[in-house]
Design a protein around this nucleic acid. Sequence first.
DNA 1: CTATTATTAGAGTATATACTCTAGGCAGTC
DNA 2: GACTGCCTAGAGTATATACTCTAATAATAG
Lengths: 220, 220
Amino acid sequence: MKTRDKILLSSLELFNERGERNITTNHIAAHLAISPGNLYYHFRNKSDIIYEIFQEYENLVDYYLDIPEDRAITLEDLTFYLESVFDGLWSYRFFHRDLEYLLDSDPRLRRDYREFTNRCLAAINRIFGKLAEAGIIEPQPEELRSAMSLNVWLVITNWMAFLKTAHASEESASLTLTELKQGIYQVLTLEIPYLTPEYRERVMVLREKYRPVLPEAAPA
Amino acid sequence: MKTRDKILLSSLELFNERGERNITTNHIAAHLAISPGNLYYHFRNKSDIIYEIFQEYENLVDYYLDIPEDRAITLEDLTFYLESVFDGLWSYRFFHRDLEYLLDSDPRLRRDYREFTNRCLAAINRIFGKLAEAGIIEPQPEELRSAMSLNVWLVITNWMAFLKTAHASEESASLTLTELKQGIYQVLTLEIPYLTPEYRERVMVLREKYRPVLPEAAPA
DNA sequence: CTATTATTAGAGTATATACTCTAGGCAGTC
DNA sequence: GACTGCCTAGAGTATATACTCTAATAATAG
């Protein structure tokens, strides 16, 4: 593998594990057993590394959230979208952790992220539309649908922070993909009241698969 | 005012304005025109300052979220809770920005914050219970109520980050309390499907007061 | 083989950061 | 007036961090 790609890969790995704030360019170089000079030959600065990683993330999610225009949407599609979004969140989990700082230090990133968010919101909105078309949820006025989409986005992007900050376990490193995907339970909770009678049961069964197993309240 | 209190006040102000990550103890001392030595006479380290500020925040929110046991809850109560929580979020807005890092660097903070979150979730849950008792929302099974409470919490604690990262304006400093309180619109959106016919209109009118004024999509 | 270009090592640097240490001032008290 | 305890100044330090510079080594082209 090219050194350049190794830098991106190691950076992502280290950022995810220990947080962008705790990883310096020297750490990355040391981890790869290359010199700092070498790293800076491939990237002008740390921001450029992060920016490029973000673009990978962006492409991944854009790819997953490509909603078909020509056919109806199914419950399997919905599952796929949800699973994919949380997979993406997991693979690039360092990003949301220091989001505000990162956007403050890189105008390109701020602009791109804003557009990325808007695309995601639009995709969620379209999914809601198609779910209504498919008779899975009741159709709702556009105004409500937008607000609901935004709530879905807020729940999705905050679920990981909730797990890492409020969860019972002491070590923050203990987060797993399985736990993260329990966020799907929370997202489906938002949709419950809008489900059509025909689909209600099926969605409730799907939701149940992601129910968090409470680790707290151990017997005294 | 005592130097110690001035340090806490200035720290909070600077953290809120520029982010904890961008503010050093030397900055704080300089801002107060005192020596670093003086600052470190009053606080052992930066973490201690942050911890103490968190305790103020905690006390404030605990005070606001004291749900009366002896009487029914009204729509005015609900408004008060929502306004208060967003006021608190505003006054200590630096805190959620770097939450994960802060908790990683201070075990006391991690423990206290986890308990704080649980208290907030319990309070939201109780509010839902009392809203049902008051006939404002339909009663729901405990399991659903818990999941809804968690979603409310996720929306509340992520709303500010959304504004700061995804909003149209370029400068992140431009956030206002008014904008922040539009998060109430999002929270009330979650409750819409559960409203009783008697209260539906009143809540919808209340919600309308917080409707965001879209700054985007200006005429071309 | 030679010339050029791409890649790498590694020492080095300017700046920042959290924090320490010593000396001394100031208010109150006997 | 001397003593005491609280508070403050300010120079200083060890370490870290993002990044640079030079020289050398591969890789490639003619």
